[in-house]
């Protein structure tokens, strides 16, 4: 190295600085887009809300939790996927109805109504819910979720909100 002035930048140090600068710019230039590339579909908001017709009210005997299932088709990336939903409908009277989601509030398995025990039971971790949706035992942190509903011309509609 020929330079004697300690303030002079040596060729080696100059290249180190330039090299790491250019390297960082290129690394960020590709790295940040790659993060966005990986994450972007996950941040896409799909959904909104829909009123799902659940058939005439007479389909649901008074006092008996009845499973109603429906499927919705959604676009996921390059493919349309149908997603199935299940709700338990309990008709108390002609105007008073409860619509429970069958998704367990613990870890999202599907609960099932057991007539003999008069409980909703989740098969995954044995969470028990009462007919009112209250947690009776097991690991569930909160009661079963409920859907809004409306009745028009004797037909029951369920308000599905997503996203």
């Amino acid at each position: 190295m020929s330079s004697h002035n300690p303030h002079d930048l040596s060729r080696r140090d100059f290249l180190k600085v330039v090299g790491s600068f250019v390297g960082s710019v290129m690394g960020l230039g590709l790295g940040l887009p790659l993060v966005s590339y990986f994450v972007s579909p996950a941040l896409e908001v799909q959904g909104g809300d829909k009123w799902i017709p659940a058939g005439p009210l007479e389909n649901y005997p008074i006092g008996q939790p009845t499973l109603f299932t429906f499927t919705l088709t959604k676009k996921h990336g390059w493919e349309k996927t149908s997603q199935s939903y299940g709700v338990y409908i309990i008709r108390h009277s002609d105007t008073d109805i409860t619509v429970f989601s069958n998704v367990c509030t613990h870890l999202a398995c599907r609960v099932r109504w057991h007539d003999d025990q008069e409980q909703f039971i989740c098969p995954c971790h044995d969470a028990h819910f009462a007919e009112s949706g209250e947690v009776l035992s097991g690991p569930a942190p909160r009661p079963l979720d409920q859907y809004e509903y409306k009745i028009e011309d004797g037909t029951l509609y369920i308000h599905l909100v997503e996203g």
Partner: peptide, 20 residues
């Protein structure tokens, strides 16, 4: 059944898919 569509998806919908 999906190769062509998935490439299209990368090019048109994924952010910076065109770049990658």
């Amino acid at each position: 059944d999906h190769a062509y569509d998935s490439v299209n998806y990368i090019m048109q919908d994924v952010s910076f898919g065109w770049l990658v």
